[in-house]
Each structure stands twice: as C-alpha cells, then as structure tokens.
Write a protein that binds this DNA or RNA. Structure first.
Lengths: 279, 279
DNA sequence: TAGCAACTTGAATCTACCG
DNA sequence: CCGGTAGATTCAAGTTGCT
C-alpha cells in the first residue's frame, strides 16, 4: 500500500521481511533504523525466534538490507542479547562478525542507556539498563549531519569562558599537550557541542496495545543525523510504526514492512488518518 | 615481594602476566579486576599490542586466570576496542567467543559510561564515551553480595561516584575512619534499590605522574559486590595500582602483577609507606 | 568551610605525509 | 601500496588555591 502526499510518501508492505524486501529497489534507501523482534521476546506475536537460530534467521535479511541501501547510507540495528542459562547469549556478536563477511562495515556501536529499565531482581545479575545500537555502513564515507543533533554545552563553559586566562591562549606554545588552549577563544559565543556515542532516554511505557519499546526520540535522532529531508527511511520490522511516524514528521519518505496483520492494518489506518499526511 | 599485615597482605610480582601467573596457586583467587593495556595504546610502556594480534596475546593469559580463580569467583575485564580504518575492531568480541571455548561463562556485560570522555571531532564519528566491563565466571553459581552496592532511590547514585573522588575520600577518612560507610548510614532511613548494569562516572584526569584511567570507585564497586573481607583480589595488569589500593582499603588480600619496572618499584614504595598498611 | 575561579589533563581518531 | 608518525580537532570533569 502506498500513501502519497506532495512532500513525502509511505509504502507499507504486509509480510515477512525476508521476502517483502525483494520488492524494494537496489540502492534506494538512505537509512535503515529497526528494532527486530528480540530472541525469545514477543513470542506471542512473532513466533519467537530462538537464540540459537537467531543468526541464521537474521543474516539473509541483512544481505537484502545491504542490497537496498545506498552506498552513502547507514543501517542502525537496535538489539540486545538475552540472558540464557545464566549467560549473555552470543548471537548478537556473532551477527556482527557474519555481517562483516557479507561486506558490511561495523562503523560504531552506540549505547542506549535506558533510564527506566525493566524492574526485577535475580540472584546473579542486576537489571539490564542498556541496549546496543549497532551502526553498519557500506563505505567509509557516508552521509552524516552532525550539526543536526548538537546539544547544549555543559556548565563548564560558563566558568571557563567568563575570563579567558593567559594560559588558555598560550597552552599550545608552553605545553606539548593537545593544544586546546590555542582555540579556546573560538569558543566565545558557542553554546552547542557535539554529542557522544551514549544516548540517554527512557522507554515509552505508555503504549497501549504494542509491546514495542522503541521510543520516538531514538529513530528521530538517527533520522536527523543520517538523512536529509526527502530521503528514504526503511524499517523492515515496523511494529507500532515509531520509525515511520518519526520519518514522516521529519519530511522523509518511508518504506515499512510488518508481518503481523493486525499491526499492519492499524498502521495503515493511523497513517491514512494522520493529520500529518494531509490527504 | 610480600607485604603482610595482621588483616591483609599484598603480593607484588614483577614481570609479564603470562609467566608470573604460573606462581599463583590454582583456585586461590576470589575476584580478578583488571584493565589490560588496550590494543594500540600505551605503546611506550607496554609495547603496544596490535589489534589483530590482541586475541592471540590475551587468550593464554585468560587461560591462566581461569586456573587461579576459585569456582565461585568472578573475572571483570575492562576493555574497549579502538576504531581502525573507520571501523570498530572486532578483537574484543572475538575474545568473548574464544574465552567461552576455554570454558568461561560470559555472564554479563556492564557498561561504564565515561562522563568526561576524550574530546575530538571527526567527520564520521562522535566521541567515545563508554567502555565494556565484561563479566566472566566458571560456574553459574558464584559469590555476589548485591546488598553491598545498593543505592538510595533517586538520582543520588550519580552523585555517589562524584563523591568518591580522592579528596572527598581522604577528607572523610581523616574524620570518621570509614567515609563511605558513614555516608551510607546517612541514607539508612531511605528506600534502597539495587543498581543496574550501567555505571556512570568520570575518569580521574588530575593525577600527576600516572595516567590512572581506572577510577578508584570502579574496582571498589566490584570488590564490594563480588568479595567478602579477607578474600583475595588479583590484578594481572596493575598499572598505577588502583585495584590494589581499593582492595586493601576494603580489607581484602591482593595479588598484583606489573611488568613495567618503574611502575612496580613505585607501587612497592607506596604500598610499604601507605598508612593503611600500618607497618 | 563553603564557594568561586583558574588550571590541567585525558585507553580518541581522523587526515596527511613520509619512507 | 603498506606502515608508521605527526598535526589538528575537541569536552567535561577533577584539582588547587584563594576569599
């Protein structure tokens, strides 16, 4: 199903990502952001791929994703391995190694620190408060709009910049160090800095019908960072459609795949009715 | 060299961990906390193992560590892979897979969020603000004193790490004798909760002679969690000795190995003179 | 003794250049 | 073309010293 507007359009595909991806043109996608059904999770709705089978299930999909991604595009994979028999399962790190054999570059691993992680107590482990956000690329050079996600500078700025000391201007000459002082004067008037590879944010626990815990700000952040308006964003496991709505809000085109028919129908309904599409 | 006191003792070994570990009795260690020289780092003092050679260098040591650890003991490995040719290097995740073949259980992966990470700007990457704290065990059942690291409800947890800086600790010790215990007492009326597997804290950057990147609160936290007083803590890569001092402060015995002779000599000096040993 | 202000340094990583 | 090194870039702590 396609929903078109003057500024952007959404393509929704009902079915298994493994097969539906064949309908997507090669090198047509600028960004893939997805949170696949975790191993052993969501067994009710997705049939719960077992941890031992996870890599074999995911790798053919990763191959298709590589085909549809533009050379300058980026693939963000949100995943976390469960604890099985007292151990963290190794299927995620095995996927990294196998995807590199497919030709992917493992560019970076962001950490999502979940500030309101799931409660619970176990004798041999604490609550799991982080997930991986694996970044893969096809080339070393890819599109990245760093200034789009800058954040306010920390408190150190106020103290440091109030009075520029003499050593701030001469640090580079007097010391062998990093030379930060040489450029401190350039900081006058700056109030934004670049973020790090650790993202802090809560999960959205208020979602009514969906078990998807992908918070809106997460795909939004990567869409700002890795795409321009008019680019195309793909989510092969849409779930509640968080990535799709974030992309449309940002004026990007969307391709979304969902195999669970009730989810698909509700997404179609919401997208059609959504005021943002202004059909 | 051995320094003995009524309550605890420290054994310092000068040499390469690969060979010095042979002098340590089998199943004699309750906790291993260490931060080995990272690939391509500290080339001046440690010879700078290349990323591609890192696994081959580390795995024999991991085998020895498995021998000396008690069945109920824990091994905490602090490590982070560098970016090489635009990619995160895979040697760390390969080590996880290889250590499992040695018989280790990969129980958990903690994240250390470094709040004051190294500055810098690059076209394809943000600043690296986290490191891995890999937990390995020999058995599914191991010693874990969860209540020893409980924290009050609320955001005091973040401040706790800040309060454990060197000056704050010595200030408290001079007044009370056990500054940390005193602090905890102040919060006894409040509700306490267990922490998560994400640790927040800065690196210690003000140190004069040593680039002690291992902040004191980090080994201290794991010593509280995984050992009792009188237990033995091993650090095969002592460096500035942070783990050793934290263990002695906590009334644990220490076995430490250091191959860089100037570091070893200074450590011996500091341990002998340290007031905490009361020789 | 609390608070402010100056000062210092860090497991980084990219590109360019040289042999 | 491969390997090594130098130069450029950039935050957010902790630490010290003074009022």
């Amino acid at each position: 199903m396609t929903i078109a507007t003057p500024n952007h359009n959404a393509v929704l595909l009902l079915g298994d990502a493994r097969f539906e991806l064949a309908k997507v043109a090669s090198e047509s996608v600028d960004l893939i952001v997805t949170s696949p059904p975790y191993a052993n999770q969501r067994a009710n709705t997705y049939g719960g791929v077992k941890p031992a089978d996870y890599a074999a299930w995911f790798l053919p999909i990763a191959g298709e994703l590589q085909r549809v991604l533009k050379p300058t595009g980026t693939f963000i994979l949100n995943v976390k391995e469960p604890a099985v028999n007292g151990e963290r399962h190794t299927h995620v790190i095995e996927i990294i190694l196998e995807m590199r054999k497919q030709g992917w570059l493992w560019t970076e691993e962001f950490v999502w620190h979940k500030k309101n992680c799931y409660p619970g107590k176990w004798p041999n482990r604490f609550r799991d408060a982080w997930e991986r956000l694996l970044q893969f690329n096809k080339q070393r050079k890819f599109k990245m709009n760093q200034q789009a996600v800058m954040v306010p500078v920390g408190d150190w700025y106020d103290n440091r910049m109030r009075n520029l000391s003499e050593t701030d201007r001469t640090r580079d000459e007097s010391k062998v160090g990093s030379g930060f002082g040489k450029k401190v004067e350039n900081w006058l008037g700056r109030d934004m800095v670049y973020p790090t590879n650790v993202l802090h944010g809560a999960t959205e626990c208020g979602n009514r019908n969906h078990s998807a815990v992908f918070p809106y700000w997460l795909p939004e952040w990567f869409i700002d960072l890795f795409t321009d308006p008019g680019d195309t964003v793909l989510d092969p496991f849409m779930g509640s459609g968080t990535t799709a709505f974030a992309a449309l809000d940002k004026g990007r085109n969307v391709i979304g795949i969902e195999m669970h028919e009730p989810y698909y129908n509700e997404l179609k309904q919401r997208l059609t009715q959504d005021a943002r599409l202004a059909i």
